[in-house]
Computed example of a mutant assay.
Amino acid sequence: MERKRIIVITPEERKYLQKMIGCSGVTVWEAVKYRKSNDIHKRIRKAAIERGGQQMVLTPEFEAIYITNREDADKGMHRYMVQSFENGATLEGCFDTGLVVIRDKRGEVRGEWQSPRLTEIAAIQEVAMSL
């Protein structure tokens, strides 16, 4: 699945944009889903964003990375970068300690790296995807 851009709007907002622009619901849908890109679709997207529509990028789960605080086993609050993969594996990197850990779908540690270089992260991700 490749990344896809969308603008999230309510059904009421969709109806408003239809009336405002003078187009069909399909045209509004094509615009907010970035399916077409002529002048009317660009006008619809601009209006949707100006009226509070949220621009989003849909991406495969394994490409999403989030940062979280959690109480770890040592009872300290640490900030973590967590990346989940389609096979259930996770890559966790602790900002405080520099430790990067890969866990399999059962939560068992399958690899640890202390303060890896940025150039090594891709190889670590490959290990996680291969579990």
Rank of each mutant, 00 (worst) to 15 (best):
E2K: 12
E2Q: 12
R5F: 13
I6R: 15
I6M: 14
I9F: 05
P11N: 08
E12S: 13
K15M: 10
Y16D: 03
L17F: 08
Q18H: 04
S24W: 03
G25V: 00
W29D: 10
E30S: 11
Y34K: 06
Y34A: 06
S37N: 15
N38M: 10
I40R: 10
H41R: 02
H41A: 10
R43D: 14
I44F: 00
I44V: 08
A47I: 10
I49N: 01
E50M: 11
E50Q: 12
G53P: 14
V57G: 02
V57Q: 10
E61V: 14
E61L: 14
E63N: 11
E63S: 07
E63L: 10
I65T: 13
Y66S: 12
I67P: 01
I67H: 13
I67C: 11
K75E: 02
K75R: 13
M77K: 13
H78D: 01
Y80C: 01
M81H: 08
N87L: 12
T90D: 01
T90P: 03
L91E: 00
E92H: 03
C94Q: 04
L99F: 00
V100T: 15
V100G: 00
V100N: 01
R103T: 15
G107D: 07
E108Y: 10
R110A: 04
E112C: 08
R117K: 15
R117H: 09
T119S: 14
E120C: 07
I121F: 12
I121H: 06
A122T: 06
A122F: 03
A123L: 06
A123I: 02
I124C: 06
I124M: 02
S130V: 07
L131H: 05
